[in-house]
Design a protein around this nucleic acid. Structure first.
Length: 302
DNA sequence: ATGCCTACCTGGGAGC
DNA sequence: TGCTCCCAGGTAGGCA
């Protein structure tokens, strides 16, 4: 599933191959992935055709290409959210299509070479939208106008150790009565964390998913933030987590962090710390994996 | 306002 | 063999 490390892997792959290229054409093969584009396919085409890709940015799981020209490097943006199963694939000269191809962009670089950028998405929880940009409330520069409510992520400067935003984020987490995992997954507080890395970070800090966030100390929350950052960085170094062919980088290659997972997906297997058997439970209608000994259920629930 | 619940979507696998 | 059901989960929106 694409969470921050997977999206960042894709961002890095895109950055080195598409920045400086111009979008020549767009072909949409399934309208659902344009559901957030008010003017539909015509609007998408109008905001992309002929524009140069000037950068590739990311916040949390949100990925966008900045589009512009010589006078205005960031005029607007092409936002891509991968949802559950989205992929961005680069093809020099595709010999065959893809079963789940949803949008195909044809690009041309300064040398006149053409390349194809495909948005592929089996389950179609993902989407593509061309839209205006607004000043970034968490840093310099601009972000797509639909996402000011998205919180900063743990790998960006806004949340650096000791920064005012980090202090405020720590407080924001401890203001919530929700279980700590619900807060970790709330993209408005911190972005980029999904079900897999939330379980990993909770295992590392020996926290139960239902521990009320407002009963944690500032120090404990800081410890959790550091453990989460470490997990994200380690996964990024491994190129992300691929359970199946649903997550691959822009070249179609899988990441190998799955073999490093210590909690997620390890139901009925021994905890690497204490040997107890990892259990799978449902929390927020999602699977949660935890060690019943290291991550004790809070004494009073709710 | 806060937090909980459901719909959206497809393919793979289990069970009968 | 073939059918049905369940499960995976990021996000938006509805409701108490």
């Amino acid at each position: 599933m694409p969470e921050l490390p997977e999206v960042e892997t894709i961002r890095q792959g895109l950055r080195s191959h598409v920045v400086g290229s111009r979008i020549l054409s767009v072909e949409v093969s399934h309208p659902r992935v344009l559901r957030n584009q008010p003017g539909g396919e015509d609007e998408l085409r109008g905001l992309t055709n002929g524009w140069e890709i000037t950068g590739v940015q990311r916040r949390g799981k949100y990925l966008w290409l900045t589009l512009g020209d010589q006078n205005t490097p960031v005029s607007h943006a092409l936002l891509i959210h991968l949802g559950m199963s989205g992929q961005v694939l680069l093809k020099d000269s595709p010999t065959e299509g893809h079963r789940h191809l949803r949008v195909a962009f044809t690009l041309e670089n300064h040398q006149g070479d053409q390349r194809h950028m495909w948005f592929v998405d089996q389950r179609m929880f993902g989407y593509v939208t061309a839209l205006e940009v607004v000043p970034d409330p968490h840093g310099q520069g601009f972000i797509p106008e639909s996402m000011p409510h998205i919180g900063p992520d743990l790998l960006e400067p806004a949340l650096a150790l000791g920064s005012p935003t980090r202090v405020e984020t720590n407080r924001a987490i401890r203001r919530s009565k929700r279980g700590i995992k619900a807060v970790l997954l709330d993209q408005c507080v911190i972005s980029g964390i999904g079900n897999i890395y939330a379980d990993e970070a909770l295992w590392r800090t020996r926290l139960h998913y239902a521990r009320p966030a407002n009963r944690l100390s500032a120090g404990h929350v800081e410890e959790l933030l550091q453990a989460t950052t470490a997990v994200l960085n380690e996964a990024l170094r491994a190129g992300g987590t691929s359970f199946d062919a649903l997550y691959v980088n822009v070249a179609g290659e899988q990441g190998y962090f799955e073999r490093s997972l210590q909690a997620y997906g390890r139901c009925d297997q021994p905890c690497y710390r204490c040997g107890s058997v990892i259990v799978r439970e449902v929390f927020m209608n999602r699977s949660s994996f935890r060690c019943p000994r290291c991550q004790r259920r809070p004494r009073v629930t709710r």
